[in-house]
Amino acid sequence: MTLHVLATGPLVTVQDRGRTGYAHLGVPRAGALDAEAAALGNRLVGNGHDDAVLEVLLGGLTVRAGRGCWVAVTGAPAPVTVDGVPRGHVRAEWVPEGAELRLGTPGSGLRSYVAVAGGIDVAPVLGSRSTDTLAWVGPPAVTAGAVLPLGRPLAAPRPLDTPPVPRPGPLRILPGPRADWFTADALDVLCGSSYSVTADSDRIGLRLDGPALRRAREGELSSEGMMLGAVQVPPDGRPVVFLADHPCTGGYPVVAVVEPADLGRCAQLRPGDEVRFTALPPLPHLPAPGAARD
């Protein structure tokens, strides 16, 4: 009931839906960056929502199955072979005992997911099997020579499923909570410009190059809680979209927050790719606490 790792590309980590309830201790949430692709892989091989998968950055993974198992590769379309024979993307494939599953370099996107029936059964840390790459909470990154335990498959694979069609167009944002720290035209600049993904983007954040957003006030923000999808703006004015391994607190203002449904696309953007934003109408203001009781 194991998977023997023979080779890896730039980064392979174990990921599930992430770690909840420890942000106040400084523990990042982690979890699959393209959560929909990971969930699809789990469905295809008959796994539950919380089973762990492998997140593979730019292919290069080779594993040998310690027993026959159903496997599905989703996310970035890396060419899949089993003992050298091409197999499908986004479908359950049988990997016989001793056979080698290999992922080539995807022609588009960045992160592929390998779901194995039974799930990757490494020991959970603080309730999750996800590896956080900011503070390295959770299992270590997967390297050649690793032997990964597999759980017992509980259900048959479900061959009929389709990947969600990616929503085209700009990333949708809700302005705030600190839009008032920027000049009045900052959201227009953010939404009217083309940004490009820089090479230092990672699981912590999607770093962008393009027109700088300018601050309307001096001084520094006191450190405050940060959230998934936050568009944080450091002093150089170039926005960073926080992804799953973002720090729990930060001292730079957040101008807007990317819609959760658009974060999977952020996981698949390559350095040099163009990013545009569009602002959704702001949600209604919250009443002052207690006002409703008067």
Binding site: T20, E224, G225, T249, P289
Partner: peptide, 24 residues
């Protein structure tokens, strides 16, 4: 529930009205 230097972040809130009422 994440306290910081002068704020508390409530994240993963499924009942914003309920939270607002509680905070009152």
């Amino acid at each position: 529930v994440v306290p910081a230097a002068a704020t508390v972040l409530f994240d993963g809130v499924h009942d914003v009205e309920g939270l607002t009422a509680l905070l009152g």
